[in-house]
Design a protein around this nucleic acid. Structure first.
Lengths: 194, 194, 194, 194
DNA sequence: GATGAATGAGCCTTCATTCAT
DNA sequence: GATGAATGAAGGCTCATTCAT
């Protein structure tokens, strides 16, 4: 079997487990078993449990970033473009349910631990926010969106994505429907206008 | 020293530590040291580390719930009432920064682990959502809010609180200002209307 | 039980085991069992197996050095004084059979491994050779001994001690008898003179 | 490549490594790398690591024994003959620096471990001592040497060889010079005679 | 009741050994 | 026969938990 293939297999199994149990509740034995390899094999792909964990996290993050970067920069209305970005994120996180959990687990983690990784995490995570912020900024410039504090509105959007995914995750709701909800509330709010 | 006092001291120390490091990175020694008691003492207040952890989590959750229940049920416009509820939540989480992290960590945790606690967690957490949903429902009934799927809009609000706290956490922003942002976006959205 | 007492107990047990089996053949479990403590206890006295090993070695070495330093500096013939030093060494090594083996094992170890310890070993070991060399030098000055290369003659003496202990170790020979042999051969050689 | 040639290559590499690091610090990987073969290959020449180690040790020992056996039995004065034997030993150990260490490491090893090998080791080692003892005995018979306890004097000689090699090992001293020192001290001692 | 030294179950990690290529 | 990726037994070490003081 190809090395890359096997590495992917391990990362997937680890993602599955790490996303549903605490770090200390996931045994290297479990991961090995889930991946269908011997425990020792894990160590020829990752130096230790900690690194495997971070590899899982960063693997997901860069896939998400790649997805966003691959988005065509077609000319379109800012709200249309925002919808596209949202759709890409929501679709990705729906397909990668395990990563979804890890993503928000990491987001809420304290500053303790390996500063090295915290730093890299925030950096990569910013990349994403940048994409969102860029669209919002364009909308603001063209007078379509009322953005008061770019960073905060972008974060709010992120929070909405998280909570919508959270509340719909067990249902049979499509990505489109989720995006509809997000766009409606974010763009127009819930207040009935006279 | 009063037993209750000491117990509180332990819970606080544990909250501080659990909110900034992984469960397995927080040692009973650390907690004891932080709380200024001997390790063995922890065990006369809590049966084991796991229970201490859940005690911390549920302690925070019930305080938040108490805060919400204590809210006077004065007659007022639904949006005013929503603002009050939001303010109570935001103010509480600002004051209990450690619990804020734990709260959202737990929210994003998988289904693994002690089902017993997961169940109780969701139940208590629901209590909170119920308060929010009640206000939203009232607003919908009175024709002021356009609520399509109560549960989802409530979750969105929750996500917004989380992300606003997240993005403002290091700044010198008041709870009022945070609520302003949340209310503005949630009620009216960011689209500029002609 | 006193901490020092327990530490001594561990060092002794470890010495006993390390002197009769390869490092990797001695399990921490074995040492704990031999010392009558739990495995974990070992780690509150020594940071790891390696350090415990070196502690054993250096403990022996400093005891030997102390013994030599405690030797009175009475005025006496160089050969008498040499005999005293030899006797002290031989007696010590007879009483500390386990250390005897470790001592010479370490002497013949390669340069690999923690340079830190190799350095310290050679330094402490030198201390001993210095004592021997001092006596030989005095003998040379007073014209009693024909020393051509102080360092080498001292080493030879050391080699003789080792081999005499080695060959007599299972017998019922006293330290005095061993020293007699050493002194006879070292001072006069085995050639019959006309 | 010839099998014998490759086996020699492996033994040499192993000797080099085993003589400078602890058994457990020498990995089969290291040996394979040093010998320029794959790890698996080691196992087609030696059943396991332990056996490879003993093969190294016994290989050295039999070479030394062969060297001694090859010594011509010419008629000569006992001290001359002793000098020849010493020279053979010293020269061999100088040329086989790695084995020199292993030799004395093994000598000082405890009784633990595979009794099988310990027994064989002592037996083979005795062979050597026998050669030395034979010469000493001849010297004693012819009244040239004052041997009191054949076995012990032989051991002393062995200790002297070890320590002289030890102290001179980094210098540029010839085997002849080493033997000179040994013979001088062993035969005549260091006491100045009136 | 509080303490913290001692305990030992449990898990991460290593590395000798195997075997499919 | 040679190779080196995969294996998994074994052991060092940690740390939650206990209990004698």
């Amino acid at each position: 079997m190809g090395k890359a293939e096997r590495k992917k297999q391990i990362l997937d199994s680890a993602a599955r487990l790490f996303s549903s149990r605490r770090f200390d509740e996931v045994l290297m034995d479990d991961i090995a078993h889930e991946a269908g390899v011997a425990k020792g094999t894990l160590y020829s792909y990752f130096p230790d449990k900690e690194e495997l964990y971070f590899a899982v996290v960063f693997e997901g993050l860069s896939q998400l970033n790649s997805t966003l970067e691959a988005l065509p920069d077609r000319q379109m209305e800012p709200d249309q473009q925002l919808r596209e970005v949202m759709h890409a994120i929501v679709a990705f996180l729906r397909k990668n349910r395990f990563f979804f959990k890890l993503l928000f687990m990491e987001d809420n983690k304290g500053e303790g631990g390996r500063g090295e990784y915290r730093r890299r995490w925030h950096q990569e995570r910013h990349h994403q926010m940048d994409v969102i912020e860029a669209v919002l900024a364009k909308g603001a410039e063209s007078g379509v969106l009322d953005i008061r504090c770019l960073h905060v509105e972008a974060q709010i959007l992120r929070g909405m994505v998280q909570s919508v995914l959270h509340s719909y995750h067990r249902g049979q709701v499509t990505a489109e429907e989720m995006v509809d909800v997000i766009m409606r509330v974010f763009l127009d709010g819930v207040r009935v206008r006279p």
